[in-house]
Design a protein around this nucleic acid. Sequence first.
DNA 1: TATGAATGAGCCTTCATTCAT
DNA 2: GATGAATGAAGGCTCATTCAT
Lengths: 175, 175, 175, 175
Amino acid sequence: MLDAAVAVFSRRGFHLASMDDIAEVAGVSKPMIYAYLGSKEELFIACIRREGQRLMKVITAAVPAGLTRDERLYRGLLAFFEFVTAHRDGWIVLYRQARVHGSFAGEIAAARERVIVMVAALLARSSGDDGHARAMPIAHAVVGAAEALSDWALAHPEETPDALTTRLVALLRSG
Amino acid sequence: MLDAAVAVFSRRGFHLASMDDIAEVAGVSKPMIYAYLGSKEELFIACIRREGQRLMKVITAAVPAGLTRDERLYRGLLAFFEFVTAHRDGWIVLYRQARVHGSFAGEIAAARERVIVMVAALLARSSGDDGHARAMPIAHAVVGAAEALSDWALAHPEETPDALTTRLVALLRSG
Amino acid sequence: MLDAAVAVFSRRGFHLASMDDIAEVAGVSKPMIYAYLGSKEELFIACIRREGQRLMKVITAAVPAGLTRDERLYRGLLAFFEFVTAHRDGWIVLYRQARVHGSFAGEIAAARERVIVMVAALLARSSGDDGHARAMPIAHAVVGAAEALSDWALAHPEETPDALTTRLVALLRSG
Amino acid sequence: MLDAAVAVFSRRGFHLASMDDIAEVAGVSKPMIYAYLGSKEELFIACIRREGQRLMKVITAAVPAGLTRDERLYRGLLAFFEFVTAHRDGWIVLYRQARVHGSFAGEIAAARERVIVMVAALLARSSGDDGHARAMPIAHAVVGAAEALSDWALAHPEETPDALTTRLVALLRSG
DNA sequence: TATGAATGAGCCTTCATTCAT
DNA sequence: GATGAATGAAGGCTCATTCAT
């Protein structure tokens, strides 16, 4: 049911996606959706939350402790691009649809911030709070670059996650 | 009148923005908007077009010929950050809202792509078509990084466009 | 100006005819129409009234006293069909458009009744009130037949008024 | 629901009839009408179609084969007058409203023409295509006469369909 | 006097949301 | 528990009508 919602939201956008569409794709009746997931907004937030958690889990798993900073950055980006490639719909909901509507700003900001904080931790040279604070704007930039590159990759399906990672790492090597 | 439309579209998004809202903010009656700007879609396109042209003009003016590549990149990014800082609404319409709605694909592709193409031209080492094509994904990444940095700067008003530019250039210098 | 109104009403119907259209065809500005002819309803009524009077005048002139009943009937019908053929627009307003809208029922009924009374007078054998009263339903039928034949003729422009008259007279000869 | 639509269309005309009116008369909410009958145009067409079929069925049933031409004409007209008397609204929609709106030309041509074609078939002496074509204008005239007589009868409630039929047949007997 | 410019009001249509079954 | 059926509310768009110039 959430899968259906993600698929429809991704394809049509929040407003053009009607509850009828989602119910039909899910193969259940509309009142079921209301019973289990609540209103349309709540449904959309549930989508954001699930996709965000999936993304976090994938990245977290990809960057175990005990690696060099560059290695962790490479693997983290690779995991990110792999997720985007494998979960087109989820990514589109997260990146394109969700950011449009002020109502979901909180939810999406939270999901995004989690990723950025993790990247900032990767980037910080010194491990203190100060180093982390200085790394935050850079982390924002890196995540923004990765997102934009993913967005570009939507129109270039032949790009592999590896290639994307290589491109971005090359751009950032001196950072 | 277009200003009102940009403000409302930026704040509420295309679908949640009602023509009544826009008319009220503009201080005119709805039929006036239809008389001068046409349907809601046409109005949205007019917004995209104007903001896109403004942004292009600002950046173009900032990167005269006869400068080194680094100098041009620096000045271009600075102009970009200045525009985003000064025209928050216009930028949001251009970057966030416009991407969601497939109907406007043509207009948006034209408006947004122009900026990215220009950045790609700045970045391309070799000046042939091939170099340009290879620079495109990088240009997307750079613009994405700049946008994310702008977003972050919204929560840090003490950051000047100069500082933002310096940060990003430092990150990218080796690209 | 009335000519323009009749033309537009005839072509588009009362509701689809906009005051803008009429003003444009008339070559004047909208407020002029309001100044001279009043509201849209009043304008339509003015059209009905003028076309109705024209029709009456034409028929009246065609049936002078001193002819046989059959002769008068023939000439009256001929005049009617000639009017319809020559003033397509006026006739359409009168017959097709005006009868649709309850608001104009009074005006159109009055115009129509005048013609019918005249036909009843033609048909009445005895000249007293009684003969006239008995002729009324027949007059209605005759006028209805003539109208329907005219309506049919709109789609058959090759039909001359003479031919139409001949057809109808043949149908009614024994009446 | 269709009954309500026919009633409102008959009384107010296509354009003045609002979907709100129809919904209220029908005792349902507007979306129901859209769910079952579609748009306003489709609703109007549905009305035309149903009333046309009803009229055709009544007349067809009244003129079985194996009767003389005069007998069939008499019975056909009688059935027609009975229908008009009993289904005033339906007849008005069919005859008056439907002719105004070009958009419905196809549907109307189909519905109204069927009746006239049937009358033409009754009237045609020779049964070939040629005889039929020649009978068409006469059929229009006859139907027009019948309609006008019906109109007149509305103001004379004491007139029975029988009496009306007798009057018209007398007028036409020599046709 | 003549008009460009402006608007109030209304209509068709859709959709998130909820009962009665 | 699941759904078919129903609706309140709102939005895009148009047009008859009127001032200020």
